[in-house]
Simulated scan of single mutants.
Amino acid sequence: MSEFQPTPTAGVDYPRTWSQFEDWFVTEEECARYLERLRWPEGFVCPSCATKRDPYRSSRGRLICRTCRHPGTVTSGTIFDKTRTPLKVWLAAAWHLTSQKSGMSALGLQRVLGFGSYQTAWTILHRFRRAMVRPGRERLKGIVEVDQSYLAIRERRDTPVGKGGKRRTTKAVVVIAVEILEPKGFGRIRLQQIEEESTASVEPFVRAVVEPGSVLRTDGAAIYRALQDDYQHERTVIKSVMPDAIPAHVPLPGVHRVASLLKRWLLGTHQGAVKPAHLDHYLDEFVFRFNRRTSHSRGLIFYRLLEQAVQTDPITYRQIARKSPREG
């Protein structure tokens, strides 16, 4: 493979097909070299002293800074940190996760890669979800619709063998922001779980994800009034507020379309079984996929995910799970 270019090229910077993937990543050394070029596209930079200089390369893939002697590996300080799972398996998981338009559940990944443990597949997926939010990503702008939606999510509960699995259904509130393109179509989106439909919950979300001065389209709820000085606020009273008003999907088509797709994705790919404590990371995955829906190359999405993965801080299974999770 040649040196990476600013604009990634299929077959040069990332594999086009699964067959090509298998040709590229035969050994752990080849996988490590690929991640190294993604992490340091302009050459190795010491994580400790920030010196840009070729490192000493010792056994077992260690990279030792020639200036401060700091030892490390290409996976140190990333989501792959201290993993005992082979890098080829990690890259294969990233390929399957991004090559399927609807993604994969942990059970599906366990089956396709032959993991002996459901926990391993579940942890890998959640680590990749942490990498799906690009640091410093641009805020939405132009015309942006904002509204809330309720999600009914089912939590699997442990039961004795033979008794059947009982599920508790929880209603989660999700605030949705959607860029509206002219003359038609939708741009990027942002999602976040909130505790309740209130100014205290919605206002910080809007300010964090929508560029000031943008046109903000909402329903007639009072929770948006605090935003009217910094945004061009277009309010429409809908039926959920007043019985004689127009239906909600007419003035806010983007939000309702995204809410429908989100519910279908959670129900289809994950059977609606998601712990509320982990919902935000599933929302991050949905946003990552939706905002790249027009990509003609699944391989490029694979490349972007790994590019972000080597810049994402490590997280352990215990930090992710807290308790014993059993959702897909």
Rank of each mutant, 00 (worst) to 15 (best):
K88S: 14
A92N: 07
A92I: 07
A93D: 12
A94C: 04
A94N: 02
L97H: 13
A106H: 11
A106Q: 03
L107R: 15
L107G: 12
G108T: 09
G108Q: 15
G108P: 03
L109A: 07
V112E: 11
V112F: 06
L113P: 02
G116Q: 08
G116P: 05
Y118P: 04
A121Y: 10
W122K: 10
I124Y: 10
H126G: 04
R127A: 10
R127Q: 14
R129Q: 05
R129I: 03
R129A: 05
R129K: 11
R130M: 14
A131L: 00
M132E: 02
M132H: 01
V133I: 10
V133M: 09
V133F: 10
R134S: 11
R134P: 09
R137Q: 12
K141Y: 10
K141W: 00
G142M: 05
I143D: 11
I143G: 03
V144L: 11
E145S: 13
E145V: 13
V146S: 01
V146T: 01
V146C: 10
V146W: 08
V146M: 12
D147L: 10
Q148I: 13
R154P: 06
D158S: 13
P160I: 02
K163N: 10
K163C: 09
G165P: 15
K166W: 07
R167Y: 13
T169P: 04
K171M: 05
A172F: 03
A172M: 10
V174H: 01
V174W: 04
V175Y: 02
V175A: 03
I176N: 00
I176Q: 04
L181R: 14
K184N: 02
G185L: 07
F186P: 05
F186T: 03
G187Y: 04
R188Q: 04
R188D: 06
R190H: 00
R190P: 01
L191T: 04
Q192N: 05
Q192K: 15
I194F: 04
E195W: 04
S198G: 03
T199M: 11
V202E: 09
V202A: 08
E203Q: 15
P204C: 13
F205T: 09
F205G: 11
V206C: 13
R207I: 10
A208P: 01
A208V: 07
V209W: 15
V209G: 12
V209N: 12
V210N: 11
V210P: 15
P212N: 08
P212G: 08
G213I: 05
G213W: 07
S214I: 01
V215C: 13
V215F: 12
L216W: 09
R217H: 13
R217Y: 04
